[in-house]
Simulated scan of single mutants.
Amino acid sequence: MTAFKGDILLPAPAWVTYAPQIRLAGKEPKIIQTDSGSGWKLTPRALEEAAVLCGPGWKLLIHTNPGNPSGTCYTHEELRALSAVCRKRSIIVLSDEIYARLTFSRDHASIVQHYPEGTILTTGFSKWASAGGWRLGYAHFPNRLQELFNAVKSAASHTHSCAPAPMQYGVAKALKENAQELDQYMNNCAKILQAVSNYCHRELSSVGVVGRKSEAGYYFIPDFEVVRSGLLALKEEADGEVMSKAMLEEADVALMPAASFLRPADELISRFCFVCFEGAKALEALESLPSNIVLDDDFVRQYCLPVVKGVENLKKWVQKYTGGNQFGNIAQLG
């Protein structure tokens, strides 16, 4: 972002550090709002409209796929349509695909497949390899962007030298010698995460909390709009911050409000992270089961108990603010 000279487009909801990074680079992000109807994904029309309002020359699009905080994934058809706009409007794509190897279907679609000449793909080992502390990431630049690559490499040389050598050796050894084991590890992680995701989505839906089901990674975006009337009655205010504070104090559950991800502060959506459990035990249990097994709620309740308890607390909290009626005051007024 610092080396790039031009406008930077940022679809929202967006991961929390992108906007600050853009501002630290001396620019102001051009925010493109998405909606739940599209799965919180950027549409070609919205991209076209945003690009028209930018200045002349190249633009940079921050494209997160799978989404954080949404957990949704783009299809090949959607990526082809976005690629057409990028070619037409001189848009370089910075594609953040850090959660790609945790796509539940195990069939990740990347915009690189449709716009290879204009996409910089960034990813790393922090998520899928459970190597969060290592922070070993990398970027793929196409030959066409050699000039930008050289500028980025030069800027990097003034801020850091390289990833620590022990990490490089460790990852290289694993990739060379343990490819089959790593692939199985990704499969098992994706299988467990999908089971937990489905459980959380279904249970929250049962009390009127709607949201697009996650397709990858650790997150989805539930909408707690059903509690708005109750919050107004008991708190006299109803926005994301008030809701999140009430959840923490009354349900012992910490969720980040919409405003943290560049959405309007009055929205009652939040990012729900469903990896608050001891993954090692869940993985060990899965390895003892048949490879073709579909994990059910019993597995989630046995090996992902902190998440289950959190969801149960949230359901009770929602019912408190809806009078035990998932449709709240709407039904009472009707």
Rank of each mutant, 00 (worst) to 15 (best):
M1N: 06
L9N: 05
A12Y: 04
A12F: 06
P13N: 00
P13D: 00
A14Y: 03
W15S: 11
W15L: 10
T17C: 12
R23T: 13
L24V: 09
L24S: 14
A25Y: 03
A25T: 01
K27Q: 12
K30A: 12
I31E: 10
Q33R: 14
D35L: 07
S36T: 08
S36D: 10
W40T: 00
K41N: 07
K41Q: 08
T43W: 04
A46V: 08
E48N: 13
E48K: 13
A50S: 02
V52K: 08
V52I: 09
L53S: 15
L53G: 13
P56K: 14
K59D: 03
H63W: 03
N68K: 07
T72C: 01
A81I: 06
S90R: 15
E97V: 04
E97A: 07
Y99K: 10
A100V: 06
R101I: 08
S105C: 07
H114S: 09
P116V: 04
P116Y: 03
G118K: 02
T122F: 14
G124Q: 03
G124M: 04
F125A: 13
W128S: 08
W128R: 05
W128Q: 08
A129S: 15
S130R: 15
G132C: 08
Y138D: 11
A139L: 11
H140A: 09
N143W: 15
R144H: 14
E147N: 09
E147F: 08
A155T: 10
A156Q: 07
A156G: 06
H160D: 07
P164E: 09
M167Q: 14
Y169I: 10
Y169D: 12
Y169P: 07
K176Q: 09
K176H: 09
E177H: 09
D183S: 13
M186W: 10
N187W: 13
K191M: 06
I192C: 04
I192Y: 03
Y199C: 02
Y199N: 03
R202F: 09
R202I: 09
R202G: 13
E203K: 13
L204H: 01
V207Y: 01
V209K: 01
V210S: 15
R212Y: 12
R212H: 11
A216H: 04
G217D: 06
E225K: 11
V226H: 02
R228I: 11
L232A: 07
L232H: 02
L232D: 04
A233E: 15
A233I: 07
A233L: 12
E236H: 14
A238P: 03
S244A: 14
S244W: 05
K245C: 10
A246S: 12
E249N: 10
A251Q: 00
D252S: 13
D252C: 12
A254H: 14
A254R: 12
L255Y: 06
P257I: 05
P257W: 05
R271G: 15
F272G: 02
F272P: 01
F274S: 01
V275W: 12
F277R: 00
A280K: 10
A282V: 00
L286Q: 01
L286K: 04
S291Q: 12
S291F: 10
N292T: 07
I293C: 05
L295W: 00
D297F: 03
F299V: 01
C304Y: 01
C304F: 01
P306K: 02
V307M: 08
K309R: 15
E312D: 12
E312V: 11
K315Y: 04
K316F: 08
Q319N: 15
K320W: 09
G324H: 04
G324Y: 06
F327I: 11
